[in-house]
C-alpha cells in the first residue's frame, strides 16, 4: 500500500515535470494557427497586377468604390524607321474609366481615337480561386462589352445606328500557380451587327491565352496571344500577340509593351489585327493605370 502510494506520487511528479518541459509556447501557437487556418478560406489576390493583361481583360476586378483611370497609347509601327521616329509620330489613344461596384462586379467605359470608338463593358466574377476551408482551383469571370464606331459613314447603303455596334463576350478562366506565375485562358465570341462583305462572318471566335511572371517584387513580364478559330475570322487578319512588362509604383501601374495590334478594344485587337511580327508591324504602346478612391475615408 505504502509502496503503491509512493510510486503513484513519484509518477505524478515525473509527469508534471515532463509536462512542464514539453510546452513550447511558440509551437503551441503555431499549431493553433494551423488549425484555425484550415477553417478559413483564403481567396487568392493579385493574379494579375491590373485589370488588363496587355490589350485584353484580366481576371482582376477593381474593389468597390474605386475608380481606375486608364490612359493607353499605341504608337505607329516600329518599321516606319527614322522618318516616323520608329512609330512615335503616330499615336492612337484610349482613355477609360473603370468602376468597382461590388467585390465581384465592375463596369467601365472608354473612348479610343482609333476609329473614333466608344466602348463599355460589364464584368462579373463567377468563381474565386481559394484555398483553406473552401478550395477552388481557378477564378472565372464573364465580360460582355459593346463598341460603337462613330466614324463618318461613307457607305452608300441605308443607315442604321445598329450597324455601328459590335459586341464581345468573354469567359476568363485564370489560375495563379505560384506567387509569381499566373495563366489565363479566354474563350471569346465577337459579334458584328454589320460586316462589309456578304462572305464575312458576323460571329467570330477566338481563344486567348495570357500569362504573367513576376521577376521582381514590383515588376512582372506579361504576354498575351489570341488565336482566331479558322472559318470564324475575317480574311487577311492575323492572330494578335503582345508582350510587355508591368511596373508598379504606389497607386500607378505602368504597362509597356510591343504588340502587332493597333486597336485597344476587343473587336479591333482580336479580330482586326493585320500587323505581322515577322514583317516588323510592331506597335510600341503603354497603359497607365491610376486608381482613385471615390468613397470618403471613415474618420478616425
Amino acid at each position: 500500500m505504502l509502496h503503491k502510494t509512493c510510486f503513484t506520487a513519484l509518477l505524478m511528479l515525473a509527469a508534471t515535470l515532463l509536462h512542464a518541459q514539453e510546452i513550447d509556447l511558440n509551437k503551441m501557437l503555431e499549431e493553433e494557427q494551423k488549425k484555425e487556418d484550415q477553417k478559413k478560406t483564403n481567396y487568392t489576390e493579385a493574379t494579375f497586377k491590373t485589370t488588363r493583361i496587355i490589350n485584353g481583360h484580366s481576371i482582376e476586378n477593381i474593389a468597390p468604390g474605386i475608380m481606375d483611370f486608364k490612359i493607353s497609347h499605341r504608337f505607329g509601327t516600329v518599321n516606319g524607321g527614322v522618318y516616323d521616329l520608329f512609330g512615335l509620330d503616330n499615336a492612337s489613344m484610349r482613355m477609360g474609366f473603370d468602376f468597382g461596384i461590388t467585390p465581384r462586379f465592375m463596369v467601365g467605359v472608354g473612348r479610343s481615337t482609333f476609329q473614333k470608338q466608344f466602348d463599355g463593358f460589364l464584368k462579373y466574377k463567377i468563381l474565386r480561386q481559394s484555398s483553406g476551408y473552401k478550395t477552388m482551383p481557378i477564378s472565372m469571370a464573364f465580360i460582355t462589352s459593346a463598341m460603337v464606331t462613330t466614324l463618318k459613314i461613307t457607305d452608300p447603303s441605308p443607315y442604321y445606328f445598329s450597324n455601328r455596334l459590335q459586341f464581345a463576350h468573354q469567359l476568363l478562366i485564370a489560375r495563379k500557380f505560384s506567387e509569381g506565375t499566373s495563366i489565363q485562358i479566354t474563350p471569346t465570341l465577337i459579334h458584328y451587327n454589320y460586316v462589309p462583305l456578304a462572305t464575312d462572318p458576323n460571329d467570330l471566335l477566338a481563344i486567348g491565352i495570357g500569362g504573367r511572371q513576376k521577376i521582381w517584387p514590383r515588376v512582372s513580364v506579361n504576354a498575351e496571344y489570341y488565336y482566331l478559330v479558322p472559318g470564324y475570322s475575317f480574311a487577311g487578319t492575323t492572330n494578335s500577340f503582345s508582350m510587355g512588362v508591368d511596373l508598379e509604383t504606389g497607386g500607378h501601374v505602368f504597362q509597356l509593351h510591343f504588340t502587332n495590334s493597333r486597336g485597344m478594344t476587343e473587336r479591333t485587337f482580336i479580330t482586326e489585327t493585320t500587323g505581322k511580327w515577322s514583317k516588323g508591324d510592331i506597335f510600341f504602346g503603354f497603359n497607365i493605370s491610376r486608381v482613385f478612391s471615390l468613397k470618403k475615408k471613415p474618420k478616425k
Partner: peptide
C-alpha cells in the same frame, strides 16, 4: 489602409 490597393501592395511588395 487608405485603399484596397495599398493593402495589396503591403502584402505583395
Amino acid at each position: 489602409f487608405n485603399s484596397p490597393l495599398q493593402r495589396e501592395h503591403f502584402n505583395e511588395n
